[in-house]
Amino acid sequence: MRWLILLSLLFLGCLGHQAVEHRANLTDLVKSNLYPFDGYRYDNVSVKVEDNKIFVKAKCSELEGEDDYIFVNDNGTLILKSYCLEALPQALKDELIGIALSNRTIAENANGIVTVRRILPQTSAKFYAPKELFSVTWHGEKTVSALIDLDAKRVVRIYIGS
């Protein structure tokens, strides 16, 4: 009987070790799939796993704001489902707001709280070109947004929603 209990404990211990190892591998995999801004490095990354979803919060001490990612673990393949990347230099955010407001439609409709977010190339490809762009959005009575190409310093797409 004692042997049986000992064997069971050893087996459970192995399973636990495998789970910890799997979790560590997954965390490393997730960390290698993050996209900090312009060569900056994240100093603080928290990873939370719930079922097949992986929630990531990442911060860079030199930048204002936080980057959020949600991945889906599809049988070992990580799929980026959602992201909200706001860790940017404040002066860049203001520069981008200035570029957005240089567009007449945006200037006439912008109202409310403004957010500045980074858009990854895989998303940008659907709307403009496969390169990093920026979204400046006013959350007021209407949602008013400008998609900006920083290299060209111009608004490339506009969205006005309800």
Partner: peptide
């Protein structure tokens, strides 16, 4: 804010974001 009323190029579904 939550996803939903964002422009189509912001893929932020399921993420709470403190905007102010």
């Amino acid at each position: 804010t939550l996803g939903g009323s964002n422009p189509p190029w912001e893929e932020v579904e399921g993420i709470y974001k403190v905007v102010s």
